[in-house]
Simulated assay, not measured.
Amino acid sequence: MNTDLGFIRKDVEINAEGTLIKGWLYLPLRKKNEPHPAIVMAHGYAGLKEMYLESYAKKFAQNGFAVVLFDYRNFGDSEGTPRHEIDPWQQVEDYRHVITYASSLSEVDSESIGIWGTSYSGGHVLVVGATDKRVKCVVSQVPTISGSKIAHRRVNGDALTELLSSFAEDRLNRQRGGDPVYYSVVPGGEFENSVYKSKDALEFYLKGSEKFNNKVTLRSIELSRGYEPGAFIANISPTPLLMLVAKNDFITPTDLALAAYEQALEPKQLALIPGGHFDPYTQYFDQSSNAALEWFKTHLFD
């Protein structure tokens, strides 16, 4: 318990229709016996709750918010198989399950629940915010906007032909009872191919947590190519949306995020963060976290 910091943190288990999602519940120490507004949050592509997100959760809790920070199914402490498989639509459902859990708590004001997402989950919260009106506020940091557009920028020509063939072979193998094919998330893992190859991605993932397992299923890559969360952005309104966009983002490209923001309706706000995709968590943490905190305060506190 972190009572000296103004909050307590508890391990929690959430029944997601038979699969246990595990996470941390942060509760501010009450000055009044009243329920708190709440924030539900999770990481991006292959990320774990231990990787950089505790700083955000602690900051939100110290400012009066209950927070549920969780691992998706198939990752970290949560149950689910195949391990290290990322189905974006299933992760969207995991957000919904955790929102349901948060709304059931006596310490939480079920009418004041916000969601925070980053990178891949920055896309997830666009979908959830547009389709689940239990959500009263959305913060989307360096979000995935279009899986197909990102995929075409990263892989083309002969490499694309080879990749598409590998998807088909993996599906046939799995249908016959074989094990999934895996990629490393970043170079240096046990698998020759990796999802990301940049130096900043390598540092981000490998320094994030000792619990990080540097692998993801090939099907996760296939599923990402058809994931289009930006298509939902115009439907978030009238739920308030804050987008935090890195000025030099080549992972979830800056231009795609800015174009999507133009499609969003009011109330909305854009915060431009210096640097690249991974800088909001570290070098510009104060800027990214303060912007999110003020947005949540404005729209979740009475």
Rank of each mutant, 00 (worst) to 15 (best):
N2Y: 12
I8P: 00
E13R: 09
A16C: 10
K22N: 01
G23S: 03
L25E: 10
L29F: 01
N33L: 11
N33F: 01
A38C: 15
A38L: 02
V40M: 04
H43L: 08
Y45T: 14
G47S: 11
L48P: 13
M51W: 06
Y52C: 02
Y56A: 09
A57V: 08
Q62L: 02
Q62A: 14
F65H: 09
V67F: 10
Y72N: 12
E79T: 07
G80R: 12
P82E: 07
E85T: 14
W89H: 14
Q90I: 12
V92T: 12
V92F: 09
I99T: 05
Y101A: 02
A102T: 12
L105T: 03
D109Q: 03
E111I: 00
I115V: 15
G117D: 05
T118E: 12
G123W: 01
H124G: 00
V127I: 13
V128E: 05
G129W: 11
K133F: 12
K133I: 10
K133N: 13
R134Q: 13
V135S: 07
V139C: 11
S140C: 08
V142Y: 03
P143V: 02
T144W: 03
I145W: 01
A151G: 04
R154G: 00
N156M: 03
N156K: 13
G157D: 06
G157L: 09
D158M: 11
A159H: 12
T161H: 11
L164E: 13
S166D: 14
S166T: 12
F167D: 07
F167A: 04
R176Q: 14
G177S: 08
P180R: 02
V181P: 00
V185K: 05
P187Y: 05
P187E: 04
E190V: 10
V195E: 03
S198Q: 13
K199R: 13
L202V: 12
E203N: 13
F204A: 11
Y205W: 07
G208P: 11
K211D: 12
K211Y: 13
K215E: 15
R219C: 02
R219H: 10
S220D: 04
S224W: 02
G226M: 01
G226D: 08
Y227N: 01
G230S: 06
G230D: 02
A231R: 13
A231K: 14
A231G: 10
I233G: 06
N235F: 10
N235R: 15
I236H: 04
S237V: 05
P238G: 06
P238L: 07
P240W: 02
L244W: 00
L244M: 11
A246Q: 08
A246H: 04
I251D: 13
D255H: 12
A257H: 01
L258P: 04
Y261P: 09
E262G: 11
A264N: 06
L265A: 13
E266Y: 08
E266L: 11
P267M: 07
L272F: 03
L272T: 09
I273C: 09
F278W: 14
D279G: 00
P280N: 09
Y281M: 10
Q283Y: 07
F285Y: 15
D286G: 00
Q287V: 10
S289P: 03
W295C: 05
W295P: 05
W295Y: 04
F296L: 08
T298W: 00
T298H: 12
D302M: 08
D302L: 13
